[in-house]
């Protein structure tokens, strides 16, 4: 059995209210079963292109999104369905976008890797590794200059910590004391290659030191720990104390993209991480606190699955974009 090191929290992790727990559990189930359904639809060629699923990583996006405020902004990665749903993107909007329908969140122009929603402050998922970091810093600059009290968040993967954009942005954000939180979802693999073959340090949070910025390695599987560590970083940012780098140790159950089964994983690794499933961890806490039982969990799961199926069936009936859509939205004319 492969052992998983669980980082110690650096802040006090209080049990969240039953309402917040219930809402996070619902979101994690929604993300988990949306990803499962998308995989099924892809393999049946009901959705084209490719996709990058985040099953196993739901604790990070959900724990962070639960602590965001209206007005905060987010940039994220092409493994971004979870971020979008955690922030509150309607399932129908996401599903229609996945299927290239005009009623999708980007009118069918974005697809799986580019979910965007202005009404949620989701500046966009990004298919270019690391490109989203400076954009979040820019949104943070606006918040700083306009004194809105808002913060910006950028999600990225472990491999993005090797790209220039990461280093330029952490440097600039620190020296300008921008209200931004950098959230690295370290799922141990950059595409098909394990971290230790591409990256000379194991805990990526250590990289924050050279930018004179707090860097924390976090148990990304426990959404309450994520919530607590992120809340502390967000409070620092809102107080004008500058950025924080949070490295979330997590794991993706699926491969890098649609057809990847993950043959490069050591035997037992997937199973070990599934023992630390973020949904299970939160559900177990709720059951122990008398806030949930197995029957309720099953009912909630089924209700989420019905909701997803409803969104799929709805999206499949939605129209494709007209040919005129091709040349629309090149320049804003207003």
């Amino acid at each position: 059995m492969i052992g998983i090191r669980i980082p110690e929290p650096t802040v006090e992790v209080k049990p969240l209210s039953e309402d917040i727990r219930r809402s996070m559990l619902y979101k994690m189930l929604q993300i988990r079963y949306t990803e499962e359904k998308l995989q099924e639809l892809f393999l049946a060629n009901a959705i084209r292109g490719t996709t990058h699923l985040c099953n196993g990583q739901e604790g990070v996006s959900t724990g962070v999104a639960a602590a965001l405020r209206k007005g905060d902004t987010v940039t994220c990665t092409y493994r971004g369905h979870g971020h979008a749903l955690a922030m509150g993107m309607p399932l129908k909007s996401l599903m229609a976008e996945m299927m290239g329908r005009v009623s999708g969140c980007c009118r069918g122009k974005g697809g799986s890797m580019h979910m965007t929603d202005a009404s949620l402050g989701l500046l966009g998922a990004n298919a270019i590794v690391g490109a989203q970091l400076p954009i979040a810093a820019g949104a943070a600059l606006t918040a700083q200059i306009e004194k809105t009290g808002n913060i910006a968040v950028s999600f990225f993967g472990d491999a993005a910590s090797n790209i220039g954009a990461f280093h330029e942005t952490l440097n600039l954000a620190s020296v300008w004391k921008l209200p931004v939180v950098f959230i690295c979802e370290n799922n141990r693999y950059g595409e098909y290659t394990p971290q230790h073959l591409t990256t000379p340090v194991e805990d990526l949070s250590i990289r924050a030191i050279s930018y004179n910025m707090p860097g924390v390695t976090v148990d990304g599987q426990d959404s309450e720990v994520v919530f607590a560590e992120f809340s502390a970083a967000a409070a620092r940012a809102r107080a004008g104390e500058g950025p924080t780098f949070l490295e979330m140790k997590t794991y993706r159950y699926r491969g890098h993209s649609r057809t990847d089964t993950g043959p490069y994983r050591p035997a037992g690794e997937l199973e070990a991480w599934m023992e630390r499933d973020p949904i299970k961890i939160l559900a177990d806490k709720m059951i122990a606190a008398g806030q949930l039982d197995q029957v309720e969990l099953e009912e909630l799961t089924q209700s989420v699955q019905r909701e997803i199926l409803g969104a799929v069936e709805w999206a499949q009936r939605e129209p494709y974009p007209d040919p005129e859509e091709l040349t629309r939205d090149i320049f804003y004319e207003g």
Binding site: G104, C106, R107, T116, D117, A118, G124, I330
Partner: peptide, 8 residues
């Protein structure tokens, strides 16, 4: 602007 379907 294009990829966001005319929103950003």
């Amino acid at each position: 602007y294009y990829r966001s379907g005319g929103t950003w």
